[in-house]
Design a protein around this nucleic acid. Structure first.
Lengths: 376, 376
DNA sequence: TTGAAAGCGCTAACAA
DNA sequence: TTGTTAGCGCTTTCAA
């Protein structure tokens, strides 16, 4: 997963990682290379006996280069182990384009995925990425920060829950700064969106549980300040209905995406006279909490109780048994968000307001936390 | 926690964030500013009626500026909401300096901390940071990758376990590329180091347990491929000895920093005829596993069993009760690593091989997983 | 204490 | 298809 300073020769797919290639540089004779100084495009050009511009075209996959020339250049690139200088590229190409990724509640695993993806996207497009946290600013502080930010960047990526904040979005869009929301269910009229289909994913997961024979399924909702929470709940309900299972309000508990809230919800669910045989928590942290409560009550997972989560964060595999969950490709989503933002920024120059809703594929990851319900 | 593109006027503390200021730019008359274009140093210079060079001096905290001039410039900076262009700064100042952060086993929470810190450091010093993962390459693959990397960067930051790999280090140092190891206990002769004092931290934690009245304390060791594991174990033993408690080999189990390994170790520890009243796990993931096992066995934490972890990652607070643990300031450490690397790179120009061992303060974070041992 | 000149490495726009 | 020219925004060096 190269994040920066990897050359992209011709049509390489963004997602694929090139195999680590051997250093083929035999003789260090050619161009005198001073200590520690990186190789520049000029040295490559000299070795390939073309102009720097041609080298630039080759490494950027420009079509208008004769095949023979391209190969000559590629050989020189590999021989020298050349890697483009990102700062220079950014300065020259991305005309001052600077985008921001702002987050609150840095919930560990999630955050690192966001960062890795956004970083990769920024490196790929030679865009300057500003990362900042607005933790504990309050609504007014956030608005003020957004206003200040609008002056400094030409685009903003917003993970939840910030992307649900009306104030922040209003401040940004009214300043003409395009915004991309990450992993938010609201496909707003005003801002672009990169997300998975939470409704379908939750329905799919519920159907999976039903297929295993469960009919009394508990559900722990996510934080009400995130629209994705509602979509997941709706997906859950839809699957129940499709299977002809009557919804039982007592089997649905409010959670807040925290481990703690999962603990409480699980207690309520498992204290029922007729407890559920499976519990679907709206994220992995809460699912982990369910497992913990089950264990404390002497229940075996999955023999006595099946548990599933959502997101596939590190919590899903940091727990025993490992969680069956819905995988959200967060890093890839953040990477896409950079592209979308850039496109939007460029469009904006031409005075077209572009809003897209980019839905990427999710995946149901089967691990060890689901089994058929206990007979009895 | 601004990571990039925040100006540092004179002596501002790195940690503080400036209040978001108002946009006071009334007339857009001065320099014609095209849509979305960021403010440049020239515009600031024009407004302050000085040369761009003077502005540069002010925002970089250069001493040779008259106080009146500095204030005039600062006012202009604030008025315009100016933020330096990192790419340009990097291009002009850091003469092609590019450093890399390479990791394997991206263990969620840990990784994001590393990234955030290194990013901040890179932004602060206008250095280009290349992030890459070498997962599943094998020893040979790593060596090859290291050899290739050595040609492309002038310095490398290595978190564990990569910083313990003899092959990688040999490849890098023999190519004259300075390396800084992060959070490794080995204070190598060849490479610099940023770490906490694992021995002292572990001893302190053990003494803390003893002060609470525990004498039968279980210990779960960390992965043997990391030198920090050994230091922590030694610290544990030292505290026991200082308290006059005879070491019991049966109370020490091997772990591998994974949740799973913690599960197994905990089972062994708690199956003993006389189980420990407290367990010290060498990281938070394993401590979380201990809690899980305890619960499954109907033990209350901390009433029946005290549990402590190490690192203070998100796992420490994603568990109930929340873990008492040793806090490693990972982000700050990564930030420092950038500085050390840069210093080392510059020194190297003068042919002095500089190796430092930078030890930062740790902290014992008291939460809810420790109590006095049960009487009886 | 301040300013002017000269790039850092790359790419957009144009010309050949 | 290829090369030339002219910067991107900043900092270094040197001169005033």
């Amino acid at each position: 997963m190269p994040i920066a300073a990897k050359i992209r020769p011709s049509g390489e797919l963004p997602g694929r990682r090139p195999a680590p290639e051997e250093a083929a540089l035999g003789t260090t004779s050619k161009p005198a290379r001073r200590k520690g100084r990186a190789i520049t495009i000029h040295e490559v050009a000299a070795l390939a006996q073309v102009s720097p511009m041609t080298v630039s075209r080759v490494i950027n996959g420009n079509a208008n280069v004769r095949e023979a020339t391209r190969e000559k250049v590629m050989r020189a690139v590999e021989q020298l182990g050349y890697t483009p200088n990102l700062a220079a590229r950014s300065l020259a190409a991305a005309q001052g384009t600077r985008i921001a990724l702002i987050y609150t509640n840095p919930s560990g695993a999630y955050l690192s995925e966001f960062l890795v993806g956004a970083l990769r996207g920024a490196a790929r497009t030679a865009t300057q990425l500003v990362v900042d946290t607005w933790d504990g600013l309050g609504a007014d502080g956030e608005r003020a920060a957004a206003r200040a930010l609008a002056k400094n960047v030409s685009g903003v990526i917003l993970p939840p829950p910030l992307c649900e904040s009306r104030g922040v979005i209003a401040e940004l869009t009214s300043a003409g700064v395009p915004v991309v929301a990450l992993a938010s269910a609201r496909s707003s009229e005003e801002i672009s969106n990169v997300r998975i289909d939470d409704f379908r994913a939750a329905r799919e997961m519920t159907a999976y549980l039903i297929a295993h024979g469960h009919t009394r399924i508990g559900f722990i909702k996510g934080h009400p300040n995130q629209t994705a929470s509602a979509r997941r709940h709706e997906g859950f309900q839809a699957a129940l209905q499709e299977a002809g299972i009557a919804p039982d309000p007592g089997l649905v508990q409010q959670g807040y995406f925290t481990y703690r809230s999962g603990l409480e919800a699980a207690e309520k669910l498992l204290s029922r006279r007729k407890p559920p045989t499976a519990i679907f928590a709206s994220n992995d942290d809460m699912a982990a909490a369910v497992i913990s409560v089950a264990h404390r009550r002497g229940l075996d997972v999955p023999r006595d109780l099946s548990v599933v989560g959502y997101d596939d964060t590190s919590a899903a595999t940091t727990v025993w048994p490992e969680l069956t969950t819905i995988r959200q490709p967060i890093a890839a989503m953040a990477d896409s968000a950079v592209d979308i933002l850039l496109r939007s920024i460029r469009r904006k120059d031409r005075d077209i307001h572009m809003v897209v809703d980019h839905v990427v594929a999710h995946e149901l990851v089967e691990r060890a936390s689901v089994a058929a319900p206990p007979k009895d």
